[in-house]
């Protein structure tokens, strides 16, 4: 048989060699040895939530400003000791003495 025909036949036989399938579960066993991500502390977790991939999250500044504003607003509201009702504000705005007006109105 000519050499080139033998080459063709050899390639054909090599192509027919049975495939070697890896055993079941081998991939899982290999993956069980794979490196695990390092455990994060609470601060690192918070930082990665706010700054994912180490980059500054664009909304982080807005969120921080909102938080500071709300805290300040809450603190100021807590300092208010005088009871203020809506009517007295309206009377004061109209230049009326709210207490006296109420007395007169009540008769």
């Amino acid at each position: 048989m000519p050499e080139d025909k033998l080459d063709i036949e050899l390639d054909a036989v090599l192509a027919r060699l049975p495939e070697t399938d890896p055993p079941v579960g081998l991939a899982e066993r290999i993956l069980a040895d794979a490196p695990r991500p390092p455990r994060k502390t609470l601060i690192e977790g918070l930082r990665s939530a706010i700054f994912p991939s180490g980059r500054r999250w664009p909304a982080a500044g807005a969120l921080a400003s909102l938080s500071v504003g709300m805290m300040a607003g809450y603190a100021v509201a807590q300092d208010t000791s005088l009871p203020v009702d809506a009517d007295s504000i309206v009377y004061a705005a109209l230049g009326l003495d709210a207490d006296r007006f109420e007395l007169e109105y009540d008769g």
Binding site: T20, A27, L31, A34, P37, P38
Partner: peptide, 22 residues
């Protein structure tokens, strides 16, 4: 995969393991 990403690790194994075993 080096950082522990399981999907990247699985992709490496699925791509290369059958040929390595063969």
């Amino acid at each position: 995969a080096a950082a522990g990403d399981e999907r990247a690790q699985a992709a490496l194994v699925n791509t290369h393991m059958p040929r390595v075993y063969a």
